[in-house]
């Protein structure tokens, strides 16, 4: 075992590399896809954190800046509603962009292969 030549080792490694190449398509639509979805989810969560969307939703009925009289509460509610709508909209856009990214991930290999075939 210890006297194996470098060529034998090289052969074994090349076999291994070929196996890796063959695993590529399978990986793209299984493990790779899961990774991308996970990454997108983390990104969306981070963005939500930055916006503080849920904090605003949870505090919808809490008056802003300690203005606890009726007028203050009303204004607060209106303002918070407005903020929640804008922030929600931004969040939706980000979710949409991420969805598009996932779709691109799914379609891209097929599209690339199609392009290669037509230009061949």
């Amino acid at each position: 075992m210890n006297n194996t030549s470098s060529f034998e080792v090289l052969g074994l490694i090349l076999m291994d590399e070929i196996r890796t190449v063959l695993y590529f398509p399978l990986w793209w639509y299984s493990k790779g896809l899961l990774k991308v979805i996970n990454g997108c989810w983390e990104f969306i969560k981070d963005f939500e954190q930055t916006l503080g969307f849920w904090i605003w939703v949870k505090n919808l009925f809490v008056p802003m800046f300690g203005e606890r009289d009726i007028a203050g509460r009303l204004i607060s509610f209106g303002l918070r509603l407005f903020q929640i709508i804008t922030k929600g909209f931004a969040l939706l856009i980000i979710i949409g962009l991420n969805l598009i990214f996932i779709i691109i991930w799914l379609v891209l290999p097929i599209f690339v292969i199609y392009q290669i075939i037509i230009h061949f």
Binding site: V21, L108, V112, Q115, I116, H119, F120
Partner: peptide, 13 residues
């Protein structure tokens, strides 16, 4: 373009 798309494939790889 054929070459370009081939390299995209290698990028994915």
């Amino acid at each position: 373009l054929l070459f370009f798309w081939l390299t995209i494939l290698t990028d994915l790889y």
